[in-house]
């Protein structure tokens, strides 16, 4: 055996390097396998939805659809899924566009200790999260009606109120760890307030802002009860369609399509947010 061994091209150290490289590669694949496993775990619940979305017939005991097709997509389209998707996007983005800056300002003030009884204020801010939304909505509907606020305005206002605790909470945490020394450094380097805001402050809190904006978007995107009751049915959003469709048995392909439509935009947004913030910190 030993006689057959060809001389190692790099000798002993070469072999060690080779082994290290193999181990590194194994570790890399191990990590990848882990990622794949976790992703699979997260995706498993979506598998039936995906199958149903392209199932024209899937009788009870069968393991897979017996007739494939796009009937669910046609029906969902006929029920107004696409305009509803657009309305939900607009609603989510509007809520996000208002609640994120509000949360940033409130969070900054709280983190800087500029608010008297800051801890109590924080606790109160989170209170709406703890109260059943249905009860709150019924009450707020009456208030909005008494004040004579138009439905859509009241809808956005209430959703913003619902989203602000989340954005404030995230931004408060972000500003608690925020080093104002960066802004001072920037100023002595000659940056005026506009440059400080655009080139230093916003980039530094951007990951938190993105997370806050995403959550605020979700509040508008996923709301059912406020959109219906306070929005007075003026905005037929995707959750309204989904809720109506899911309240019956037998609509499974349509429900699956609507559920997919309701899931994909947030997932895309989340991916974008994650990729962007990773690109910023790595490289």
């Amino acid at each position: 055996m030993t006689a057959l061994v060809t001389p190692a091209p790099h000798g002993r150290s070469g072999r060690r390097v080779l082994r290290a490289r193999v181990e590194a590669r194994a570790a890399k694949w191990g990590r990848r396998a882990g990622t794949v496993a976790v992703t699979a775990l997260l995706l498993v619940p979506f598998l039936p939805i995906l199958l149903w979305a392209f199932a024209d017939r899937w009788p009870y005991p069968e393991l897979a659809p017996t007739v494939w097709g796009v009937g669910g997509w046609l029906t969902a389209t006929a029920q107004g899924a696409w305009p509803a998707l657009t309305r939900s996007l607009l609603l989510g983005l509007t809520v996000s566009a208002i609640a994120t800056p509000l949360g940033a300002m409130a969070g900054r003030a709280l983190a800087r200790g500029r608010v008297p009884y800051g801890k109590m204020v924080t606790a109160l801010l989170l209170a709406p999260v703890a109260v059943p939304p249905f009860a709150v909505t019924m009450g707020l509907t009456t208030v909005a009606l008494r004040l004579g606020v138009p439905g859509v305005v009241a809808l956005v206002a209430v959703l913003v109120v619902a989203a602000v605790p989340y954005t404030t909470y995230i931004m408060r945490a972000a500003y608690a760890g925020y080093d104002e020394g960066f802004e001072e450094t920037a100023r002595t380097l000659g940056a005026g307030s506009r440059h400080v805001l655009l080139r230093v402050h916003l980039p530094l809190v951007a990951p938190a802002l993105a997370a806050a904006a995403f959550l605020a978007f979700l509040v508008g995107w996923s709301d059912y009860v406020v959109t219906l009751l306070i929005g007075a049915g003026r905005i037929v959003s995707l959750p309204l369609l989904l809720g109506a469709s899911a309240s019956a048995s037998g609509n499974d392909p349509t429900i699956a399509v609507l559920a997919l439509l309701a899931t994909i935009p947030p997932v895309l947004l989340l991916t974008a947010v994650t990729v962007l913030s990773r690109r910023r910190t790595q490289r």
Partner: peptide, 14 residues
């Protein structure tokens, strides 16, 4: 479209 007719009634009662 509503998931539950009670939702419509809730709006009216509110």
């Amino acid at each position: 479209p509503v998931a539950d007719t009670a939702d419509a009634l809730n709006r009216v009662v509110s």
